[in-house]
Amino acid sequence: MKQWFTLLNKEFLEMARNYKWIWMPITFILLGVMDPLTTYYLPEILNSVGGLPEGAIFEMPEPSAQEVFIMSLGQYQMIGILIIALSMMATVAGERKSGVAQLILVKPVSYFSYITSKWAAALILIVVSLFLGMLASWYYTGVLFEFIPFGTFMESFGLYSLWLILVLSFVILCSAMFMQPVAAGMVALVTVFISTIIGGSFQHLLEWSPTQLLPYVSERLITEKWPEHVWPATGITLTMTVLFVLLAIYIFKRKELAD
């Protein structure tokens, strides 16, 4: 256990030295406040770029606070996932490729600790960044539109973070699988995006799929009721997260470190 914390400390120190602890939260906060701001100021923005032609009637429906907040989550779904994949794809693959893993793993370091400490450090960074980002989004939505009850906000944060943790675990699995960080990142991104598209197209067939967590969060925000299949989907998300991490350890252990 002491060794695990030594490894975790090293991950945190590395994240501090390459400024991940600064730019990740800032990026997530910017992504969070973008939609409330642009939606609120859209009429002014349109005017400032020349406005609408004379006589054109343009009825803009006033979006609800919930809709604005859900749009922010859409940002994390695209750009957030991209950032997670790009910033974490090298976590194992990069150390293997450079050769520093040889120096570390010739010491009596457990493979379990090596992978899980990396996973835990990345998880903490991402969950903290996501929380700050969603909190900013919630606050601006509240100020500019209407405040969503804080409890509901926390519920949606909790549920949505599970989905991003699953994405992170898959990125780490890919990183343990491939020697090239870029290959790991590409495979992870393509797989995640394809599965969200499939999940979106066959919603009625894949009700328990982790890709449904975002639609369920949205439904919960708008209808204020829990969708029917949300708990099985949550259970499957958690199970898959654990499986991905275990699989990453298994694959990493079987790989020969030297080439």
């Binding site: 090293k10 120190l13 030295r17 050769g99 520093v100 120096l103 570390i104």
Partner: peptide, 25 residues
């Protein structure tokens, strides 16, 4: 073990690296 071309965590200082490896051992 010392590999032929040892690679370290470049962002660490020599002291930090040795203490890190020592604790891992």
């Amino acid at each position: 073990y010392l590999p032929q071309h040892p690679v370290f965590h470049d962002w660490m200082t020599a002291r930090e690296f040795l203490e890190y490896v020592g604790k891992l051992s």
